[in-house]
């Protein structure tokens, strides 16, 4: 049996909003490590990896590893019925075909149960190799969201280049071109406002802005975002989920054939 109690239920609500437009159906895996998900978008260009560590839950019971296939749109519908301050408990029986989401108001005067049907999902689990990235950029997540949104009004591909000068986001379209350069800036009042550029080697890669924009749905989860780039690999766009885990989006680059 499985019983996971998350006091900060709004985190789970935000997590679902961050992935439901990218992935339709996915298996949530539950083990002693935590509650996790790995899934690709329907065109297999992007991959999302979510981990909510068991220590982040107030109560975490998972008697044996369990994989629960869920339609993320339906799960999102149910979680939208939870208040932002509600405590959310996820419950399931081993071998059962449903999962229950229980919402408790902070004052315990309202308790709701939503039972959702599980589904069988055939999904391949991919091995993500540990990599040394050529460049890693950390910046305010709202700034990254703004850049992706602005550039997608001009073009559909962003070129992200990291050099000694900073990180450059460029696009081109029918009406013209756009370049946005950010320089490292660590002299800020709040650490989350810093722009930190760690360049081991210069790198330049092209990506579809449509996916980048989709990743920025995770902006409410974290003040900062980390973008890791290597010329041989998909970019990793990572948002921390409070102290308990992360959402990592992997996006395959556009490459010359």
């Amino acid at each position: 049996m499985l019983e996971l109690r998350l006091v900060q239920g709004s985190l789970l609500k935000k997590v679902l909003e961050s992935i439901k437009d990218l992935v339709n159906d996915a298996n949530f895996d539950c083990s002693s490590t935590g509650f996790s998900l790995q899934a690709m978008d329907s065109s297999h260009v992007a991959l999302v990896s979510l981990l909510l560590r068991s220590e982040g839950f107030e109560h975490y019971r998972c008697d044996r590893n369990l994989s629960m296939g869920m339609n993320l749109g339906n799960m999102s519908k149910m979680l939208k019925c939870a208040g932002n301050d509600d405590i959310i408990t996820i419950k399931a029986d081993d071998g059962g075909d449903t999962v229950t989401f229980m919402f408790e108001s902070p004052t315990q005067d309202k308790i709701a149960d939503f039972e959702m049907k599980l589904m069988d999902i055939d999904s391949e689990h991919l091995g993500i190799p540990d990599a040394e990235y050529h460049s890693i950029v950390r910046m305010p997540s709202s700034e990254f969201q703004r850049i992706c949104k602005d550039l997608s009004t001009i073009g559909d591909t962003v070129v992200i280049s990291v050099t000694k000068e900073g990180v450059k986001f460029s696009t081109a379209g029918d009406i013209g071109t756009a370049n946005i350069v950010l320089r490292q800036n660590t002299t800020v009042d709040k650490p989350e406002d810093a722009i930190v550029i760690e360049m081991n080697e210069p790198v330049s890669l092209s990506f579809a802005l449509r996916y980048m924009n989709s990743f920025t749905k995770a902006t409410p989860l974290s003040d900062t975002v980390t973008i890791s780039l290597s010329s041989e690999l998909p970019v990793v766009v990572e948002y921390k989920v409070a102290e308990m885990g992360y959402i990592r989006y992997y996006l395959a680059p556009k490459i010359e054939e």
Partner: peptide
């Protein structure tokens, strides 16, 4: 001209 690569080009089934 560049074309969109798929994830499977980089990550293998585990």
């Amino acid at each position: 001209l560049k074309s969109q690569a798929r994830i499977s080009r980089f990550f293998r089934c585990s």
